[in-house]
Design a binder for these strands. Structure first.
Lengths: 218, 218
DNA sequence: GAAAAAATTCGAAGAACATTCGAAATTTGT
DNA sequence: ACAAATTTCGAATGTTCTTCGAATTTTTTC
């Protein structure tokens, strides 16, 4: 029976599900969601077409799964190492932002689906995806707030505006990077973007106070 | 016969075409392109389904037409009034950027299709759409270059990076605005975004030199 | 360790949608 | 008025999404 993902599988036929998601991520990223038929996905995953419906309610469900699944990996990746620099929100924001670019660079398929197909897109209005994206965006809002509280960033800076600039810049940069065949180092550009952007975030008088950012570099 | 848009219509049944585009813009913006069937478009336009193919090669062709058609209007709107401030690239950039937001505010359907459905999206890779978008983006690159040349903006500022920030911010802001039901004045937010962003564009020593921006205000 | 219960798989069939064809209707040119 | 060109759309086709349920496999129970 076509059982939605409501009840988890009880065996390692979990692998099939993963195969499907992997195939879908690749194909969606390649040609776009609309141009990818479930027949293609099934074939690429080596699974009969109707069986897809044993793992996903419908195509939209599969689409929503792609960013969800990767979001977890990304979130964990970026959530872990706040220990060492926990006291420096500005440093943390920078690390997370660049980590984000690195993740995109290392998972371009996912990046393509997420930044070119799903977000922004009306799909993001769908509850499940919206939730993930919001949580993601609020993380940045939070970090900016901390940086303001610590005195690094201007007190008048609107954290939501700052988030829009960070996310929007990342989205645009990634989109261009992907569309033009990944011609340059995305993380490098991301760093330049962040540094440019941060100039407008910083508290004026504080420029030198916190200018000891080059320790360890990367 | 199903004649692609190759040869223009020789009568005012041009109106039908416009009806279709209008209906498509509204429906695509409402529910998204994938969730809108040509049957819906045909019904909304009051035209039998197969007749759509007398005006558009296929669905993708209709999709591409939406941004194309509006792009012209926007482009003309923003290209006209450079006369008065032609000498001040910084002022011109600001005016065009805000004019852009105003156009989105006044044509939210188009904004939705363009910023949530088409750009960014792999659709943008398609020749026709790419061309329009590129021309659009390069306009900003150009304006930034002028502002650099005039000494308003930092000499080290990468015009492409600046464009990414401008476009990305606009895209994100618009997306949020649309998705959350247009809760605030988009142009106002756009202005705040621009002013925040511009801080990082400006030449350092020049802060006071060119600070006479308040004449006549907006 | 076999029978019952539960979960899993997928072939066959149906529904929704995009797209094509070409004959009828209309307009244009002479 | 008549022929040529153009426009319109009903009927038919092909593709893709989705459902149904019987056959198969795995898990549980005694």
């Amino acid at each position: 029976m076509s059982a939605p993902t409501l009840k988890l599988k009880q065996k390692r036929s979990q692998e099939r599900r993963e195969k499907i998601v992997a195939a879908a991520t690749r194909l969606f990223g390649d040609r776009g969601i609309a141009q990818t038929s479930l027949t293609d996905v099934a074939q690429a995953a080596g699974i009969p077409l109707p069986s897809l419906y044993d793992y996903f309610k419908d195509k939209q469900d599969l689409v929503a799964t792609v960013p969800e699944e990767n979001y977890l990996a990304l979130y964990n990746l970026l959530a872990d190492p706040p220990e060492e620099g926990a006291a420096d929100p500005r440093q943390q924001l920078r690390a997370i932002y660049l980590g984000n670019f690195a993740y995109i660079r290392d998972n371009p398929d996912w990046g393509r689906v997420f930044f070119l197909e799903i977000w922004p897109s009306v799909a993001v209005a769908e509850g499940r995806i919206r939730k993930a994206v919001d949580r993601y965006a609020l993380r940045y809002v939070d970090l900016v707030r901390h940086a303001i509280a610590s005195g690094d960033y201007r007190r008048q800076l609107d954290p939501y505006l700052a988030m829009s600039l960070l996310m929007g810049g990342m989205c645009h940069l990634t989109a261009v990077w992907l569309l033009y065949g990944r011609p340059y180092d995305l993380v490098e550009k991301g760093r330049a973007l962040f540094d440019t952007l941060e100039v407008s975030f910083l508290a004026k008088g504080d420029v030198k106070t916190r200018a000891r950012r080059s320790r360890k570099s990367r």
